[in-house]
Amino acid sequence: MSGKKENSMLEIHGLCASVEGTEILRGIDLEVKAGEVHAIMGPNGSGKSTLANVLAGREEYLVDAGTVQYNGIDLLELSADERACEGIFLAFQYPVSIPGISNAYFLRSALNAIRRYRDESEIDAVDFLELVRSRMDLVGMDEKLLHRAVNDGFSGGEKKRNEILQMAVLDPNLAILDETDSGLDIDALRIVAEGVNKLRKKERAIIVVTHYQRLLDYIVPDHVHVLSEGKIVRSGDKSLALELEKEGYSWIQADDARAGNNA
């Protein structure tokens, strides 16, 4: 840990991962500090969502090589739920619906699981409701969604807003937003992005995974990384995203091909 730079929350080195025998991540290096917003962009199949899911601890994704340090601990040693309790949050690209369980019950179970992990007392129903209500205002969510089954029959926008609500309530150190803009019209996109912006703070890092630049008009990143064929092929500031918007991904891939796939 002696070589660790100050206030670096997440350090990924040479991360390789595969799913069902197919190699997807081929040596990712990434460093994220508290307070920063990083955007991971890239064409379909470049490994963006895999990176998000590997960080969240989905077991179908096998880490073949590399290290991930999170606040000085070996993240890869932790199970998905332990990672969440340590303050990592993944906003799903496709939030799962769970008929039969209310949103409120789901969220309270999650919050209390995290509080137990941290040796904090469980929150009671009254305090919980107060907390959730205050957070619902942030994402402009209707309170009646609280009492509906988790994501069951929700519109695309409602599902994504629900993810941000969960983030607001669970208060993570590191939030990873996986294609949070997919399936949203421009109004819904703006509302979701505004919610995320309100949750930016200096103790928190956010990784935004997206295919399109348009989300980054609203959530302005400090760093932009372009992923192609499982590697980060370009890093820069927010202007890189604009460049991509103009040129598309083909030039990156062409560049990458010319570079001869050297790691």
Partner: peptide, 25 residues
């Protein structure tokens, strides 16, 4: 759904119990 719950901090055992409750609700 189990992974969804786990990604929010809920242990695998508790996640299954919650889903059982959902199923019978």
């Amino acid at each position: 759904a189990i992974f969804y719950l786990r990604s929010r901090g809920v242990s695998p055992d508790e996640a299954r119990k919650i889903l059982v409750r959902a199923f019978t609700s």
